[in-house]
Amino acid sequence: MAIIEVNNLTKKFGDFYSVQNVALQIEKGEVFGFLGPNGAGKSTTIRHLMGFLQPTEGQCFIKGLDCRRSTAEIQKFVGYLPGEIAFIDKMTGQQFIKFIAQMRELNDLTRANELMQFFELNATGLIKKMSKGMKQKLGLICTFMHNPEIVILDEPTSGLDPLIQTKFIDFILAEKEKGTTIFMSSHIIEEIEKTCDRVAILNAGKIVATETIADLKKQKSKKFLIEFQSEQELSRFLGEQLKIKQIGPTQAIIKVQGNVQTLLHTLADYKINDLDIISQSLEDIFMHYYESGGKES
């Protein structure tokens, strides 16, 4: 049986559907990504899992317990990182960690201290004076300090600097080794790609696709921005058998699906100034699913 189950979840505000018929099945030990642009309904779905919201239709279950009815019971084995970073400002980081631990009746702070060391957080200062990144680290410590079986993270890397983001990815992979089930939302594809087994793509309140990461990668095409030394070089290049889009007198974007070998071989004959890889945006992925969805129907 799935450890996290969302059945036909619909939440309506007036005439507006925040989420519509969302269905998810997450297995034990899985790292599941929840991808979508801002306002797609990721946080709304997560709030239902936490029992914060009453669904208009449908139900959510964690380990077979109804998320709305058995909220407190569920929190015993769940860790949650809210999307909005907010603490009790007048406390120091350490006081807050201790406070939440006591609210959980958790006496052993070894894990919390380990995590503080891992994320290099000095929590002795007032929370009010902490930077966004420090607050996010503090949130992560509160999420993981009771060694939860299931973790729900809403945009975990927002506010973290790239170095810590990499560290966070390692951390998630280590948790995965331990068998923790992780459900995380994000709007950054790379982060999901590096950590997750499966991903659900959400747009405008509806699930567009649920894929394994391997499948997602196959769908993904790469784009290269190439700047040639002269206009002549570019016009000569336009004759090649590639998907080329000219965007300036000496610049062109080349789209490659799959193997980049051909492109590199071809490019060897040309004089170029610069080569950039354009990371694929969410919109591109959505466009792909919309296009394929359109063909099928």
Binding site: M50, G51, F52, T71, A72, K76, Y80, P82, A86, I88
Partner: peptide, 17 residues
Amino acid sequence: DNGSMAYLIATPNTRFK
């Protein structure tokens, strides 16, 4: 209003409590 209620009810305490 400031969002810290999330931490309070994300502990194993019922809202009633």
